[in-house]
Design a protein around this nucleic acid. Structure first.
Length: 281
RNA sequence: UACUUAUGAGUAAU
């Protein structure tokens, strides 16, 4: 079964969904019964391809089989599909349906739903779910908090984002590089690059290593603020810190320089970057 | 300790 599941997952990943489905259907004749993971894998593939009604049909088909019932992953996958497609209401209904069917939502379920609600700017409901999960002894993890924090940052509610960061610190849930990058991005997008750098200092002080995204966020902020010299310096600092920029990172700086007609500096930067062993595209 | 689900940035020229 595991071999089959791996094959189906591979087919789904490259978009050969119909073939994945055929493989699943042929398993019975081959004397190998599909299990819950097999179905979840296919349902996830359909869901990612936005073939949601089909995903639901496969889910229901599976539930009619003997010895097969939907588990938390099954629901999570479909709920996530509806959230990503923008149909948050349908997703929410499925979460209710899940509870009614006696399948307890897990940390993934709540995080997925909270993400959907944040993306549709329904923060009241998102907070409500956070409390609901805590009251049902389902522990929010770093991803759950990151999801909410990102949502609030995008909505430029930085006070609430920082408040949640505090909850994490005090509640023993260590913020990670995603948490910090999200909040730093929030500060930069609000025009306060300074505050972004202050948090950058704090994160390194607390032992959290910035990655390529963290640096890119700050460099983007500097470029948007017209501080191109600083952006260049910071780009070099990043490389010296052992963090390799990807093509997106430095093309952003090069683009910024070109827009203010500092073409010579842009060219110089390219040279420096290449000398440092970065691959330019 | 095999297989499936959730979170952050950038993405130009034509």
């Amino acid at each position: 079964v595991v071999t089959y599941n791996t094959l189906i997952a591979g087919l789904c990943k490259v978009g050969r969904l119909d073939q994945a489905r055929q493989v699943l259907e042929s398993m019975g004749e081959a004397g190998c019964d599909a299990n819950i993971v097999t179905f979840n894998t296919l349902i996830n593939g359909l869901s990612n391809a936005n073939r949601l009604e089909e995903a639901v049909l496969v889910m229901h088909g599976m539930m009619k089989r003997k010895g097969c019932s939907a588990d938390a992953v099954t629901y999570n996958v479909v709920i996530n599909g509806f959230c990503k497609s923008g149909d948050v209401e349908r997703a929410y209904k499925l979460l209710e349906e899940m509870k009614a069917a006696g399948v307890s939502p897990d940390t993934f379920s709540y995080t997925i739903m909270i993400n959907g609600l944040c993306k549709s700017l329904n923060f009241d409901k998102a907070d409500e779910l956070l409390h609901e999960m805590i009251s049902t002894n389902c522990v929010p993890n770093v991803v759950t908090y990151n999801t909410l924090i990102t949502g609030y940052c995008k909505a430029q509610n930085l006070d609430r984002a920082c408040q949640l960061l505090d909850v994490m610190l005090k509640g023993g849930c260590a913020p990670d590089v995603v948490t910090y990058s999200a909040v730093i991005d929030g500060f930069c997008k609000s025009g306060d690059v300074q505050e972004g750098f202050r948090l950058f200092e704090k994160m390194t002080f607390r032992g959290c290593r910035p990655d390529v995204v963290t640096y890119t966020v700050l460099i983007t902020g500097l470029c948007k603020a017209g501080q191109l010299d600083e952006a260049c310096k910071f780009l070099e600092k990043m490389i010296d810190a052992g963090c390799m920029p990807n093509p997106g990172t430095y093309s952003l700086v090069v683009d910024g320089l070109c827009k203010v007609e500092k073409l010579d500096i842009a060219y110089e930067l390219m040279t420096v970057i290449q000398e440092k062993g970065c691959i330019t595209d």
